[in-house]
């Protein structure tokens, strides 16, 4: 029962954080302050950098291999995407390189 209640609380708080802005700001007839509209336009581009860092935050730089597999994967993904513009190719090649490097280094 205790476990069930913990899960319920975690689920409710998570849902609250997700529902609140969508329902407070998401009525169509609603006039939003200009700054809020501006933020919603440029936030996605700004947050993507944060998500890159956030998803790599577990990288251990202090001991071998000092984040080399992560760095190599990021560079390969960026370079492939820049030249080939094929998302799946970039993601899967970078992931494969990373999986190989963490085994051989």
């Amino acid at each position: 029962m205790k476990s069930f209640l913990i899960i319920l609380v975690v689920a409710l708080v998570t849902a609250l954080l997700r529902f609140l802005p969508v329902y407070l700001l998401g009525r169509k007839d609603q006039k939003l302050p200009e700054n809020v509209l501006y933020l919603t336009r440029f936030m996605p581009a700004a947050i993507i950098g944060l998500l890159v860092i956030f998803s790599l935050k577990g990288t251990n730089l202090s001991s071998w291999p000092h984040g080399i597999p992560e760095m190599a994967g990021v560079l390969l993904a960026a370079a492939l995407q820049h030249y080939k513009k094929n998302t799946l190719l970039s993601v899967f090649s970078a992931t494969a390189l990373y999986m190989i490097l963490i085994r051989v280094l």
Partner: peptide, 27 residues
């Protein structure tokens, strides 16, 4: 690692759009 790789790809795509560059850098 497909997760960070996906985010990197999306960052590159944002970078292509000149109007988004400053936002990307700020982020």
């Amino acid at each position: 690692f497909s997760m960070p790789a996906l985010f990197v790809v999306m960052l590159v795509e944002q970078w292509r759009q000149k109007k988004a560059r400053l936002s990307v850098l700020l982020g």
